[in-house]
Design a protein around this nucleic acid. Structure first.
Lengths: 211, 211
DNA sequence: TAGATTGTTAATCGATTAACAATC
DNA sequence: TAGATTGTTAATCGATTAACAATC
């Protein structure tokens, strides 16, 4: 267990387990079996056991897993207990929405500020976060030792934003622009592809439904 | 070709090809090879050919593919040329952001309105879209024959919203709430899992980076 | 024709599922 | 002990990659 190389499908399911376990009523018995988790989430029970084995203490035959322990180790593993700073480049609608979204704190992500080329966007958001002009990017990143960047600029400016991030020591980029970004080895990109999700949704429709 | 059962990974890549092809400069030759596409997007060239073969006319040896044709058939296949109506349940920040996001029109999705339990949210958004009280849900869905629903309510209300959608004939649900939804056979769910993306991003980091 | 580039067939790789022995 | 539930080993399934014949 604690295998360094957990597969992407497993990694994607871990937050789902955590959400489910946290949603259980308080009067639920303190233990739970893989079969119950599996059926609630529409997964296979062996899959649940294998996924949990990557991250958590062993379950016990006949008893299953202690819910409290599972929650703890999932949160620990996913880094929800500690906080990582991040910055946004692109303070349009999406950028601002992410900047002001308080839910990220539960996921261990603290977005400290956003940056935009457009000086008119400078100022503070509803929740008091700063929007700076892009010129300040280097200074803020260096000062706060930022390692995670979020790109919410239009597609045509995304590579440019990405290069700026890489130049300033950012090693993980969450890209909301619909383009493939080129980065040097060692920098990782997570592409948030809303068009792809939509494609998946509408193509899996029983028949095409057009208005 | 035109295989009815295109795999999810392929389906997810199709919008990427389309974006890339559309981003090519106007003075680009009218044809392009799978090798060029592959290297631009960081994919294998056989993969590109196989993906395109699912959807498009054949390429020609020595010449490759005609860009204009590829764009046309990808748009056609992905349904970007026709429009499907959808509704949102949950008019909080995320719901409103999606409702006002004009980019969906390029993807063939027309969000006609949002609904919320809270009567105080009734009215029109910046872009003139309607937010109705949830009581109006049935009437609007029936009248416009809505088949796609988007859920942006808090986790604890998501199943309820989902049930309401199913009851009113919605057959495809795009779920932004972090819960697994139970639906009858024939209804499809596309789960937009932001926590999962974040998990993937931070776990793939070379070392854990905490501030 | 010769060469580039395609589509296809076979091999590999990785994830899921099934079977089952271990154990509380 | 008997039974429930686990972790593990082997089998299956599906996607990617490699090899290669087809063809403009």
């Amino acid at each position: 267990m604690q295998d360094q190389n957990i597969s992407s499908p497993t990694l994607r399911r871990l937050p789902t387990y955590l959400n489910y376990l946290k949603s259980l009523p308080k009067d639920h018995p303190e233990n739970i079996s893989s079969a119950v988790i599996a059926s609630a989430l529409g997964l296979g029970e062996v899959q649940v056991r294998k996924d949990l084995a990557c991250v958590c203490n062993k379950g016990k035959p006949k008893i299953g897993y202690i819910i409290k322990d599972l929650i703890n180790c999932l949160e620990e593993f996913l880094g929800y207990n500690s906080t990582t700073n991040a910055v946004i480049v692109g303070a349009g609608k999406l950028g601002k929405a992410l900047l002001d979204y308080v839910g990220f704190e539960n996921y261990g992500l603290n977005i400290v500020a956003a940056f935009d080329k457009n000086p008119a966007l400078q100022g503070k958001t509803e929740t008091g976060k700063n929007i700076y002009i892009l010129d300040k990017f280097e200074e803020v990143c260096k000062r706060l030792n930022i390692k995670i960047g979020i790109i919410t600029v239009p597609a045509e400016n995304a590579q440019e934003a990405c290069d700026l991030m890489v130049k300033n020591g950012i090693v993980a980029i969450w890209n909301f622009a619909p383009v493939h970004l080129k980065v040097p080895d060692g920098v990782i990109i997570q592409h948030e592809n809303i068009a792809a999700s939509l494609a998946l949704l509408s193509k899996r429709l029983p028949e095409r439904i057009n208005a």
